[in-house]
Design a protein around this nucleic acid. Structure first.
Lengths: 240, 240
DNA sequence: GTTTCGTAAGATGTCTGACATCTTACAGAG
DNA sequence: CTCTGTAAGATGTCAGACATCTTACGAAAC
């Protein structure tokens, strides 16, 4: 029932932001290139300098642009992170979980090849802490989630791959937020100590394939339940 | 040889940005909470409103905050995307490639379970285009890279998982930038049509495990070469 | 002729102040 | 009790000014 189109609500800064991102993604401003000055941009776009500055600051914070004081602003990367960051926010728990599964499997595989004795010692400690934190009440659940995340992240750290580590660190937090929302309405199982022990044993045995299989086995029960919830959701009322 | 400590160079806005992110990540401002108004923040931090606005705009663009005009600013997520986005920029090609491998394998696995006949038709078309774009010159190489990326992205799209799709879209661009830099100094092999055909066949056969294996086989030769380059780089001169 | 230093131009960093516009809440009219 | 109009608070945008850093160029010293 939307007869009257809801006026172009976009703000000025967002419009500038889109323009800049379009120039970068479209290739008009190649990586490494210097973009026009803030005053030039403000004049060309017909907006004030603060508007241009806010847009540049946002893109700079996301790694798209790089501002060098006293010199100018340069293109650092043509990849637009907005769909990724924005998409995770509105995604279903299942979708985030499937990406997390990809990380877990790869992390376990690489950890089995690169782990040091010190890594194994640290992982043993993290696994003990995870098993110990089996609270039943509200606060205990949060504590358990944190301990669980620390173990998964510990495996990633054993890979010595900073990109994988930071990707997992980001997604684990987002996944936790999404799961907290799901748990309000549904019961979601959590893999027990045995499955996690399998992962650590395979990593200790330096068996990449076994580690990958074990990591997949850890999250698959949880993922199976989320899968049924997605099915239910599309039966019921859901949009966007 | 740095006897004099290089004065605290950080800018005001960056300092404000760190403070805000710290409040969010630290849990002082829980997800969903309303944060103080711009004038309050400016007064508390002893800076001007534009400085606060630029910081808020940056975090808002990254999905950490959400600004509602006329109402206030709210916390959307406690996950800090900066390490992820910044880390990818300075990462080695191998590190980015290993994450991409995780995506490729998971995408192939899920695509084998969810692909529709229309997906298969589209993937056949993309694979044909990839095989056809085997240029030898400068322009041809770029064109081949784009066609290759479109096929990999096509597999991801068959999973119907928007998070996975956007994650791959982002990393493929970043990987392309990193690989372009590597190829300036070294020869890096590219998997031929046969390996990609295996992936598509497994997806068509609805065999998730075979699809995952085939996807891994596609990128492993390239990854093996990058692995040797990492070894060489740590022998030679490398810093930062 | 080469090196070094000082200066000027251009760019970003920051601040002050003001006004516009939207959202929300509250009080009064019906 | 419902609806409407108003007022307060918040963000959106703009204008102008000054501070500070980077860079490049030219002059002076060697």
């Amino acid at each position: 029932m939307v007869a009257l189109s809801p006026v172009p609500s976009g703000s000025t800064v967002d419009a500038v932001l889109d323009q800049l991102q379009h120039e970068v993604s479209g290739g008009s401003w190649p990586v490494g290139e210097r973009i026009p000055g803030e005053l030039d941009l403000a004049a060309q776009l017909g907006v004030s300098r603060p508007a241009v500055r806010e847009a540049i600051r946002a893109l700079s914070h996301c790694g798209v642009l790089e501002v060098r004081r006293g010199d100018g602003t340069y293109v650092r990367s043509s990849a637009d992170p907005r769909p990724l960051l924005g998409g995770v926010a509105h995604a279903t728990a299942r979708d985030v979980f499937e990406v997390q599964l990809a990380y877990d499997v790869q992390a376990a595989r690489l950890a089995a090849r690169r782990r040091t004795p010190a890594d194994l010692e640290r992982l043993e400690e993290l696994l003990r802490a995870r098993d110990a934190a089996t609270g039943a009440d509200e606060h205990g659940a949060a504590e358990f989630g944190a301990a669980d995340a620390r173990f998964h992240l510990g495996v990633a750290e054993a890979t010595r791959n900073p990109v994988l580590i930071e990707a997992m660190r980001f997604f684990i937090v987002r996944l936790g937020e999404a799961m907290r929302a799901v748990r309000l309405d549904h019961e979601v199982p959590e893999a027990g100590p045995a499955r996690h022990r399998d992962v650590l044993d395979a990593i200790a045995a330096a068996d990449p394939d076994a580690a990958a299989r074990a990591a997949a086995a850890v999250v698959e029960p949880t993922l199976a339940v989320l899968e049924t919830l997605v099915g239910r959701a599309s039966d019921g009322g859901e949009d966007r």
